[in-house]
Design a protein around this nucleic acid. Sequence first.
DNA 1: AAAAGAAATGACTGGGTAGTCATGTAATTT
DNA 2: AAATTACATGACTACCCAGTCATTTCTTTT
Lengths: 219, 219
Amino acid sequence: MPKETFFNIGEAKRTLITEAFLREFALKPFDEASISEVVKQLGIAKGSVYQYFEDKLDLFLYLLKESGGAKKNYVGSIERESFPDFWVFFKALFKAGLEFDRERPLHSHFLFNLIKNLQSPTIEHLYKDMLSSSVLAFEEMVKVEIAKGLFRNDVSSEIMGFMLYKVGVSIQEQMEFKGFINPKESIFNSEPVYKDKHEHLMNMVDDYILMVKPTFDKN
Amino acid sequence: MPKETFFNIGEAKRTLITEAFLREFALKPFDEASISEVVKQLGIAKGSVYQYFEDKLDLFLYLLKESGGAKKNYVGSIERESFPDFWVFFKALFKAGLEFDRERPLHSHFLFNLIKNLQSPTIEHLYKDMLSSSVLAFEEMVKVEIAKGLFRNDVSSEIMGFMLYKVGVSIQEQMEFKGFINPKESIFNSEPVYKDKHEHLMNMVDDYILMVKPTFDKN
DNA sequence: AAAAGAAATGACTGGGTAGTCATGTAATTT
DNA sequence: AAATTACATGACTACCCAGTCATTTCTTTT
C-alpha cells in the first residue's frame, strides 16, 4: 500500500506519476524496470518516490491493483446469464476488453505486459497466484457450462479450464505474433494496443471460436 | 561462436563450464543470469570466460545451439510417415522429449526455461525468431494433415499451427502449474524434470489429445 | 508573522554487473 | 635450455541499481 503522502499530493501529480510508472512496467520486466530512469523522466527526485511508496514492490502492487480494478469496471459487469451461449459471452468479454484498451490504454498496456513482467525472479511468487486466479476463473466458467450440459463432460474441468485460459491468451499472442498489433510501439505512441484493430481482433476471436468450439461443446 | 581457446582446453573442463552455465541460464532470465556468480562456483577467473567467449550473448547462443542440437538427436529422427495417425506421431514426439530429458537433463532444463529466458529485453529479438521457427514447424505439420484430408480445412493453417504449438506448450505448463513437476527443484537436485513422471506426462498428453482432437480432425 | 507540519530533495551507501587488460604461469615448439 | 605461444588471472573500469536520510523548501495552522 502506498503511504498517505501519495494521496495528499493532488490528483494531477498522482496521475502523472502513476502513468509514468505504468509505462515503465509495461515496457520492461520488474527487475529491469528502473525507478531511477522514471524519476529522471518525471523531473522529480528519487527520494520522493520513497515518500509515496514503501519500495519497488509496493509501487508495482499499486499499479497492479489500479489496472486490475480499472479493467474490472469494463469486464466485471458482463454476466454469463445475459447470453444464450457461452461463446457469445466469450466474445463479449473481448469486446469489453477492447473498450478498456481504448479508454484506459496505459492500464491496458500494463496488464498486457504482465505475464512477461512476472517472470522476474523477484516477484515470481506473485506469478503463481495471478495465474491460479485466472485459471480458476476459467475453470469455474467451464464447470457452469458442464452443469448446463453444454460442454462435454468426458474431459476434466481442470484441463478444459486451463485450455480455455490458454485460448484467450493465444488470441492476443497471435495478434502480436502476426504483427497486427505492436504493444511496444503503442506504448511509445501512447495509443491503445488495438487502435484501429477492433474488427481485426474480433475476427480472430471468431476464427478461434470456430476452431475450438468442438473441443468444448457437447457432441 | 566461442573462440578457439574454448575447444583447446580439453573436454572435461569444457563440459564443466558448459554445465555450470546451462544451470545458471536455466534458473534465471538472460539479464539476471550472472557470469560473476558462475565463475565463483566454478572457481575460475572471470577473465577466462572472456578467453572462451566473445561476450555473454555469444555464450548464451553457444548453449542454445548445443541444447537444440542435443534435442534434435532425440526428436529429429521421428517422422510422420512412420505413424498412421498424427496424434500417435504427436505422442511419439513427447516420448522422445522424455528420453532427452532423462539423458540430457541440463540441456532439457535450459530449453525448458528458454521461453521465460527470452523475455529479457537484451535478447528480445531472438524471441521472435525462435517462436517463428517453432510455430512454422507446427504450421507445416498442419498443412500436411490438411493435404492428407485428415485435418479440417475450414480454418486457416496459420491459426491451427499456432494453436497446435500452444497445445504442446500448455501440456508442459499445466504439468508445472499443477505441481506435478518442479523445474527449479529439479535443477537444484540435478535431476530430470520428468523423473518418475513419464507416465504422468503421457497421461496428460492423452487427455489433451482427447480434448483437442475435435479441434483439428476432420468431421 | 511565527511556528509547526508536510513534502521535496539529491548526495550518499552498499550492492550489483559485464567486460578489459597487463601480468603471470604453463605448455609447446625450436 | 631457450624462445615462443597459449591459457589463466583478478584487480580495475565504467556503469548500473534500490533504498536512506539529513537538510531544505513549501504549506498550513496558530
